[in-house]
Nucleic acid binder design. Sequence first.
DNA 1: TATTATTATCTCAGATTCAAGATAATTTAA
DNA 2: TTAAATTATCTTGAATCTGAGATAATAATA
Lengths: 140, 140
Amino acid sequence: MERKCNNLPFLILMQTSKAIHERIKEEMAKNKLSITEFSVLEVLYQKGKQTIQQIGNCILISSGSMTYVIDKLEQKGLLSRNACPDDRRVIHVTLTDDGNELMNVIMPEYHDSVNQMFESLDDDEAETLVQLLKKVRDIV
Amino acid sequence: MERKCNNLPFLILMQTSKAIHERIKEEMAKNKLSITEFSVLEVLYQKGKQTIQQIGNCILISSGSMTYVIDKLEQKGLLSRNACPDDRRVIHVTLTDDGNELMNVIMPEYHDSVNQMFESLDDDEAETLVQLLKKVRDIV
DNA sequence: TATTATTATCTCAGATTCAAGATAATTTAA
DNA sequence: TTAAATTATCTTGAATCTGAGATAATAATA
């Protein structure tokens, strides 16, 4: 009877992603943001105005959580809800000036931090890693 | 101004681990277990009797969450708490017969499922992936 | 037009998590 | 031996997440 999971790629992959997740969580705590909050801000920062559902699709959380996290960020003054004139069911969300300014500060730090985590890999290794991970990702 | 994260290894790594996590979550939902609950059972199944703290160290959640998840599993009759005779602060946790039987069923399914997710890689590729991930993990 | 289905968001209850502090037992050191 | 520090677990309260269902608007179809 095999009691222990001995699929090493699996174990190491999950360890690595967990470590990265924890590291980012700590970084974002410095800015008083949860990872979910940061993810929402990141989507808006990259793509500009989005509907709530578009954001939800990007970061894959439930509609109940979306309402909650958008509420929180609105209370912090980092984004604003705007009714859509064409479809009154829809709400557009955009970063406020404060939100944009905050992201202008946070994003370079975030990118540096992410790059640091992967700087032990040279270009070839990074490419290999991407190829192998894609093979796994696309089968899961 | 770089608004988008273009660190491809990072993005693909997080996508892959998230997909795997979701897949396992779905598998475990069939057994009416959350991933945290399964992780606790897995530790006990592998290592036998453990203290609450030992389990917590393995799966890295807070002591408050440990109490909660152990309570749930105890209510389901899958494990039992036992006072430690040598140190009355300590509580030993073991799988009940029901818990053991359940794990005897779940674990082979779980291993198959994990192996499936990685079967697109041959042995060389799996080894390369492990090496590259370790390089990242150990720097984070 | 009237009916039905779909869509987008919100509400709410319940589950899960963590942090801080409480409790109680043990170990260490004066 | 007593006091202080450490350790293991539990309690509590706040934060966050999910899922089910409500609401309201729009689209599709007869």
